[in-house]
Structure formats: structure tokens, C-alpha cells
Amino acid sequence: MNSVLDIAFTSNIKRVWHPVFRQFGLLALVLPGASLFLIPWLWMLSTAGKDTALIWKTPPVWIPPVYHWDNFIKAWLQGDFAVYYLNTFYISGMNVIGILISSVLAAYAFARIRFPGRDILFIVVLSTMMLPRQVTLIPLYMIFSELGWINTFKPLIVPLFFGDAFSIFLLRQFFLTISRELDDAALIDGCRRLGVLFRILLPLTKPALAVVAIFNFTWAWNEFFTPLIYLDSPKLFPITLGLHRFIGRAQIDIQFLMAMTIVSTLIPIGIFFLTQRYFIQGIVITGIKG
């Protein structure tokens, strides 16, 4: 019974067949969930290409006999979406620039230099991440309105040139993973502290900079609350406010709404697909090393 052949045979069956059954079992669990998560997307795509009659048809038609691509063009033209797109690019781009400049410097100080008050200041950075923004919202609104900044992009951009807690934290974590010996060698060779940052650390942290840029661009792209508070005139609206305004229009057709919802998500989705590796890395690093 316990012959060598027998053992070899059973273990072989196990090795070849067991993983296959296992995969089927796993897929049987993964697929239904994945379809639940996918269906809203498919439904959005399908609805965006329908005509009005087809939309109200029950049971719903999943694949419209004629896919009305012109819905996208009509909706785009109806809703000033070109303006919204440009505004969003501008706001998100400026956010990324401001955050990168200010957060790199702060993160470097926290990660590499010993100075009195460092730990306390770092705790302050971390606690601002937990602070609900509603607590500072009203005074900020009053200050910005005093400065005449209401209905300009300034409240959405200027504060970010003064650092962003999350990005400081993320960059600091990255800097800590780079060996300090490199800095020390450069310092002994007479390099200044800031020289160390720009000549040695930054070239090594390009992926981290990419993560910060990608995240902040996407967040700025998706931001709704701040522009809602500070912007009044539609010609300044980012895409989120534009989409909200689009719903508000009397009797907008659902297919147009869905078409523009798709259009509003193209950039974040595109960024995600192009930079998936960075994206996931960023989430993992900030999440785990808490």
C-alpha cells in the first residue's frame, strides 16, 4: 500500500489536480462578486448610448441596437464640459506642483535632520491628517472672502503650496527607506544638507514623487466640497461641480447624464491604468507603515 509508486502517484494527482479544482472553487467565489462590482459600469456604458425610448424600457435592454455615440457629443456641447475639463486640469496641476515643492522639503527635514522639536512637529503633521476639515472651514471662508478670493481658484490652490500632511507623511516614509549612509558620505565630502536632498535623495525617490503626484492629481480631480464652497460662476467650475450643475438643469436626459459621468471619470481611470503599480504601492506604503 505504501509503495513508492503509490506515494508518487497520489502526490502527483494532488499536485496536478488539486490546484485546478481549487482555482475553480476560488473563481466560483470571485466571479459573482466581481460581476456585482462590474455591473454598474456596464449599465452606465449601456445607458449612455441609448435613446430616450430605450431607457424606459423594461426589462432593460443591455446592448442598444444602435449605440448613440452622438449622445456624448451632444451632452459635451450642452454642458460646457470643455471649460470644466480645462479648469480641472489647471486646479489639479497646480495642486500637484504646490504639494510637491512644499512637502518634499518638510518630509526631508523630518526624515533626515535632527533638530529640536522634530518629534512634536511630526505628531502635529499626523494629527492634522485626522482633523475634519469642517472645523477650519468657516474661518477659512471668512478669511478668503476678506481677501477677495471667493470665486477665484486661489482658495483651492494657495493653501497647498504650504504643504499637505498626507504627502509629507508619505514622502518621509519613503526617505526613511533609503540608507542614511549615502547622505553621510555626501556630507563628509562637503555636500550641504539641501545638496543631499536634491542630488542624492530626490533622484532615488522618483517613484515616491510619482505616487504623491498621482494621488494628489486624482484627489484634486475628484474634489467636490471645496470648489462647491468657493466657486460660484460656472465658467470656473471643475468637472465635479459641472456634473452637479448638469443634473440641476431642468429635465436633462439620463443618457446625456451618464455619458458625461463617463467622461468625467476618464482621467482618473486612465491615470489608474497607466500607473497602477505606483498607485498600489502608494496605498500599501501609507497604509501599512502607519
Binding site: T218, W221, T240, L243, M258
Partner: peptide, 23 residues
């Protein structure tokens, strides 16, 4: 699968809200 489950988190709360209003 990871992408399928993660993708809804990439888009704005506004887009999610508008889509689910119709759903």
C-alpha cells in the same frame, strides 16, 4: 480582479452619486 474591485474607488464621489441615482 484587483482592478475590478478597486476601480470604483478611483472616480469622484459625484460620479458615483450620479451613477447610483440612476441605479
Amino acid at each position: 480582479w484587483r482592478t475590478v474591485y478597486y476601480l470604483p474607488s478611483v472616480i469622484s464621489g459625484v460620479a458615483v452619486a450620479v451613477l447610483w441615482m440612476q441605479i
